[in-house]
């Protein structure tokens, strides 16, 4: 069965367009806002939305997303209430939705129980930044029975590991732009195109670049390299700013619209 993610990339490929993938943390500042933001981002031109699952110890995240997770947890967000919100989103849109979460959340919930809930609420894929190739076999086995993509991450330091990581890749391959944690940065890996070309050698699955993409300029510079671009911390910063000015949805809608213009 083709997932919503694959269908989206197919549609975009036929039109020769690139996917704009946007990230927000679920429950930042509360789940009602998250629901509205997903719909607002879709309207503004987002093709796929990544929903971060707030975690107490997000070791792949920089300060911006750490703060978002803290706000969400403080608001009482948990995985059960997030599944509830996803079900509500699904009543309104077929937009592909991907969870970005740490493995302990799944482990604690129980792998099967977690995947059941993902399937029932309408989650299309999982990105798990602390579950490298060596540790993902158990989850892989169980996931075969579910229509959910396990999206794998490759890094500029992956080198000889790339081939095995992207073997059987589902949905899209998440190419990490540079060393470090999530968050805006001025510079990417000097040989980013080199790295992306290496990944392309081993897979036909769509490639999306993420980490540190924060503005129109970066999108224009990078869109030729890949099939999609992921923007996270920069959007979360708009939410942070929006909370202070009580204009979260406007801030995010306007920013994602700008990004969408840049990617077209």
């Amino acid at each position: 069965m083709k997932s919503r993610i694959s269908e989206k990339f197919n549609t975009l490929r036929e039109k020769n367009e690139k996917a704009l993938i946007t990230y927000i943390t679920s429950g930042d500042p509360d789940l009602d806002t998250t629901l509205n933001l997903v719909l607002a981002m879709e309207k503004a031109g987002a093709d796929i939305v990544e929903l971060g699952i707030p975690y107490s110890d997000p070791l792949a995240d920089g300060p911006v997303i750490q703060r978002a997770a803290q706000r969400a947890l403080k608001a009482g967000t948990n995985i059960d209430s997030i599944f509830g919100m996803v079900s509500k989103i699904r009543e309104k849109t077929e937009l592909p939705l991907v969870f970005l979460l740490y493995f302990n959340t799944i482990h604690r919930y129980g792998i099967k129980r977690f995947l059941e809930k993902c399937q029932n609420s309408g989650v299309d894929g999982l990105i798990i930044p602390d579950l490298p190739l060596e540790e993902r076999r158990e989850l892989n086995e169980v996931m075969k029975d579910y229509p959910i993509d396990l999206i794998t991450l490759v890094a500029p330091t992956s080198e000889d590991r790339i081939r095995e990581i992207v073997l059987d890749a589902e949905g899209f391959v998440y190419c990490i732009s540079s060393k470090g944690v999530t968050g805006t940065r001025d510079r990417f890996e000097i040989d980013l195109s080199n790295f992306i070309n290496k990944v392309k050698k081993y897979t036909t699955t769509p490639l999306a670049i993420g980490f540190g993409i924060s503005n129109k300029e970066a999108i224009k510079n990078l869109k030729g390299l890949c099939d999609g671009l992921i923007v996270g911390s920069a959007i979360v910063e708009k939410i942070e700013k929006g909370i202070k000015e009580e204009a979260v949805e406007d801030q995010v809608f306007n920013f994602v619209s700008e990004l969408h213009e840049a990617i077209d």
């Binding site: 930044p129 490298p132 060596e134 990490i176 470090g180």
Partner: peptide, 12 residues
Amino acid sequence: GGQFVPETLMNA
């Protein structure tokens, strides 16, 4: 035990 770390660290 195991190695539950970001891919960036695996080769290291």
